[in-house]
Nucleic acid binder design. Structure first.
Length: 886
RNA sequence: GGGUGAUUAGCUCAGUUGGCUAGAGCAUCUCGUUUACACCGAGAGGGUCGGGGGUUCGAAUCCCUCAUCACCCACCA
């Protein structure tokens, strides 16, 4: 193992990290124990794409979750942090299809089985990469429970839930408008559509007696309805259902007038024609009035025979030609060249979305079918109730509003996809010779073979990845062996799986706000329905990591990307982790650059050198028994440790990562290193130093696991001891009054340093008279203030300290000291101003009457202190005035 | 069109239910190699908390309003 006899001067993270991780993994420190009597704590790691590589966003979530997990262990809990990977249906499918295209073939030619075979081989090769990289981040996950979204047990779960929903009438098959991507030849959910603003042309055409506007003339072949608002005065003469003849692209058509309130009279001419097959709004209008729907564009994005001479053309090619034809027929009224409109794109692959009507599987979000707290609720209502009832708390709270808004706009969820990579829809069909069709939903096809019926065939579609991801918190906890037993129901599986019983609901879900809808909301939807439990009690949403200039890191400009795998060897994982949480707050984006990582690398090095110093001071095999504070500094630092440990614990309980780290940082650097270690050089309290180092390592471990564990292993104070599986140490007894003495020493030291600095004096002696406190602490004061000496004497001249009541002065000659008069006067002015302010406050009788007593008492004390200080300052100034200037 | 967030030191940001003379890191300036660390130490300067109004004994914090920036949702033929 890591045996470094003497700690080198600089901490070189790269030398230790992989060994340290191997040590942890081998020790079983991260393996959860459902039989433990300890309190259980569980997190599901959002599964990264199996073909992905670690980026800064992964680094952030690993860091946050790892801090929570390690902190929970340090506080004596049994922790399950479950890792896994996602099959990432759409991107992987698209990638394989692209490979096939490049090879001059396609998925239909090679067939479904060969396609899946090939895909499995491909993902099998790349899955290890991401897991290795997650290890590099120090993730204390339970690898023995690692899951993959296409695991057999997870597939079983997905199918069970589908069938349950089908039987409850929550899943139905219907012809609806979907977001069709002609490139990938699949539909995608509403949330996967992104809009890009483009400058286009807006055409106005004559259409019978009307003028109609459109940005998409190529969809207009089948238009035979004109729609207007019922209250539009301009068209009052036309009645709903009136018919008229109009000359159109390919000759005359008979059109019908439809009155519908969805039309905005202020837009264009207030009249439009509709294309129900290729537009959601038009589809809705057609549904309301029972109108015909006709497909104009095929599923490859080309025009159908209805377009006559334009048939077979891709839309971008057909559009100008159609306009030309209409113009030649005298039907073109005008063209607006500067029409800004939004183009719908598939978020994955950026293919242009063409709305199409297709027969798809949907989840009905408005049907009361969920048993929740004794009520029958719809999926939508359940999703709302778990938040309003505080079964789930979203951090930061403002996202609850965003969440509710999303639910208000939520339509039925289309869960079928026309790709092959994924969980296949567990539905079978068969037809008979009369063309009748039967449908069956189940894990296996029915075995009966009736006369006159063809064999059962499975639906070719697969399920939306998010449908399976939605079960992630609990499908991963189902016993994999039990899941092989077909005689068990879903309820049985849950009831008999000890991990599910122990670790669900999970304690917290930590993820980015950008997948609140995709994932978080859908986990709530599916999990409450299927298990009767919420998936997690808390949701912590982090922000995006941006570049130092505040821009989004993007693949198109690689120079803006901070690649964790590049940073780690250079600065260490801990430095990256600390940089990611410093100044980060929930739900807000943050900027991270090299300087921030560098700063935190320095912090790790600081910790390293603290350990070096302590090891040098107390020796290789130190006496660690009976550590107790003796000096004022000892009491003070134990008190500070106590404060820091308590505050960090409270902050982490509330997911205030940044504040917890800030407290830790300043405790270690300012209090422990700059004050305590310096003070301890006078007379080291060896057992206490050992205790403090151990406590500090344990306290820091969740934030910076590698450097702390490396130090601990190098110290080798205990055989086979691993920091990662140890609990925080109890704070030993300490005395507040002694601790206060040290703050008095700090005041004396600080003032002395300030004076010496201001006067550029060195080699100065501090004299005191009738001041036993200074006598007792002379050594410490001398060392910390870098004085020549601290000596008792008769009254003398020099610069008197004003920050302490213990009578003492610096032996500085009058002429040099004269320069300090200015500083004294400034201080005097400040105190006078403070006194005025405090007196005004206390003079306000409403303040004294209304403010809490402790606040008022505090103010009184402040006033008294300020007055005392001012008196001292005045006395000093006075003395300076009469001091001979030589 | 609807909504959310941000605006605090030169830069990047904290600031929990209103309550110390508003904080940190980086940067700047001065001094310093003192046997843990120059990936260091000591000290300093720097903010009317975006503008305006209100509530309150008291506001960076709560309310109203305006401005600028960012983002989310919906999507218009």
């Amino acid at each position: 193992m890591i045996v470094v006899m003497k700690l080198p001067k600089v901490y070189e993270a790269g030398q230790y990290e992989s060994d340290i991780y191997a040590l942890w993994e081998k020790s079983g420190a991260f393996t959860a124990d459902p039989h433990s009597t300890k309190e259980h704590f569980s997190i599901s790691m959002p599964p990264p794409n199996e073909t992905g590589t670690l980026h800064i966003g992964h680094a952030l979530f690993v860091t946050l979750q790892d801090i929570l997990a390690r902190n929970a262990r340090a506080k004596g809990k049994d922790v399950l942090w479950l890792p896994g990977t996602d099959h990432a249906a759409l991107p992987v499918n698209a990638l394989i299809e692209k490979q096939l295209t490049d090879e001059g073939t396609n998925k239909h030619e090679i067939g479904r089985e060969a396609f899946l075979e090939r895909t499995r081989a491909f993902v099998g090769n790349s899955r290890d990469t991401i897991n290795t990289q997650i290890r590099a981040m120090g993730a204390s996950v339970d690898w023995t429970r690692s899951r993959y979204t296409l695991d057999e047990s997870l597939n079983r779960t997905v199918n069970e839930v589908f069938v349950k929903m089908y039987n409850d009438g929550l899943i139905y098959r219907g012809n609806r408008i979907v977001n069709w991507d002609p490139n990938l030849e699949t539909n995608v959910s509403d949330d996967e559509v992104v809009y890009k603003e483009e400058q286009g042309k807006f055409y106005t055409f004559h259409y019978g007696p009307f003028q109609i506007g459109t940005a998409r003339p190529e969809t207009k072949f089948g238009d035979k309805y004109v729609v207007m608002h019922p209250d539009d005065e301009r068209y009052a003469q036309y009645n709903h259902g009136d018919q008229f003849q109009a000359e159109w692209i390919n000759g005359p058509v008979t059109a019908t007038v439809i009155k519908d309130e969805s039309v905005d009279p202020a837009f264009g001419t207030g009249v439009m024609t509709i294309t129900p097959w290729h537009d959601q709004t038009d589809f809705d209008i057609a549904e309301r009035h029972g109108l015909d729907k006709q497909q104009i564009i095929d599923f490859h994005g080309k025009l159908l025979p209805i377009a006559k001479e334009f048939a077979g053309m891709p839309i971008h090619e057909a559009r100008p030609k159609i306009v030309e034809k209409l113009e030649s027929k005298g039907l073109l009224v005008s063209v607006d060249e500067n029409y800004a409109h939004n183009v719908a794109l598939n978020d994955r692959g950026k293919g242009v979305i063409e709305p199409q009507i297709r027969l798809q599987w949907f989840i009905d979000v408005n049907k009361p079918a969920v048993d929740w707290k004794g009520e029958k609720l719809t999926l939508k209502q359940t999703m709302q109730r778990v938040i309003t009832d505080s079964d789930i708390e979203i951090i930061p709270k403002r996202f609850e509003k965003v969440y509710f808004h999303w639910i208000d706009n939520l339509r039925d969820w289309c869960i079928s996809r026309q790709i092959w990579w994924g969980h296949r829809v567990p539905v079978w069909y068969r037809t008979n010779i009369d063309g009748k069709t039967e449908t069956y939903a189940g894990l296996q096809p029915p075995t009966d073979t009736s006369e006159g019926w063809h064999d059962w065939e499975q639906d070719p579609d697969t399920l939306d990845t998010w449908f399976s991801s939605a079960m992630w918190t609990w499908s991963t906890l189902i016993d994999q062996n039990l899941a092989k037993d077909p005689s068990l129901s879903l309820e049985d599986l849950l009831e008999k799986s000890i991990d599910f019983k122990t670790y669900h609901p999970t304690t917290v879900l930590e993820t980015g706000w950008d997948i609140l809808f995709f994932w978080v909301a859908r986990m709530i939807l599916v999990t409450t329905y299927a298990t009767g439990q919420v998936p997690f009690k808390h949701v912590y949403l982090h922000g995006l990591v941006r570049t130092e200039n505040g821009r989004k890191m993007s693949k198109s400009s690689p120079e803006t990307i901070i690649d964790p795998m590049e940073v780690i060897p250079e600065y260490g994982t801990d430095a990256l982790r600390l940089a990611l949480i410093q100044g980060m707050s929930a739900g807000n984006d943050q900027r991270v650059g090299r300087t921030k990582i560098l700063t935190n690398r320095n912090f790790c090095n600081k910790l390293w050198n603290i350990a070096r110093f302590i090891e040098d001071t107390i020796g290789d095999n130190p006496d660690r028994e009976g550590a107790k504070p003796i000096s004022a500094a000892d009491h003070w630092i134990v008190g500070k440790l106590d404060e820091a440990q308590t505050k960090i614990s409270n902050d982490l309980d509330k997911y205030r990562f940044s504040e917890a780290y800030d407290t830790l940082y300043h405790f270690i650097w300012d209090d422990f290193a700059d004050w305590y270690i310096e003070a301890s050089k006078v007379e080291p309290n060896k057992p206490l130093l050992a205790y403090l180092l151990e406590s500090v390592l344990l306290l820091t471990h969740p934030f910076a696991p590698f450097v702390t564990e490396t130090i601990w292993q190098t110290l080798a104070w205990e055989a086979d001891s691993i920091l990662a599986s140890r609990e925080l140490k109890d704070i030993i007894d300490h005395d507040k009054k002694s601790a206060a003495d040290f703050t008095e020493i700090q005041a004396i030291v600080s003032e002395t340093r300030f004076i010496l600095k201001a006067l550029k004096a060195s080699g100065v002696t501090l004299y005191y008279n009738d001041a036993p406190f200074i006598w007792e602490n002379a050594g410490t004061i001398k060392r910390l203030a870098r004085l020549q000496d601290v000596t008792e004497t008769e009254e003398g001249t020099g610069v008197y300290l004003t920050s302490t009541k213990h009578r003492s002065w610096l032996d500085i000659d009058a002429r040099t000291a004269q320069a300090y008069l200015k500083e004294l006067q400034i201080k005097q002015g400040q105190q006078a101003a403070a006194i005025t302010q405090l007196e005004n406050r206390l003079g306000n009788e409403n303040y004294v009457k209304n403010a809490p007593r402790e606040v008022v008492d505090e103010t009184k004390q402040q006033l008294q202190d300020a007055k005392d200080l001012l008196a001292t300052l005045e006395q000093e100034t006075q003395r300076f005035a009469i001091m001979p200037t030589e």
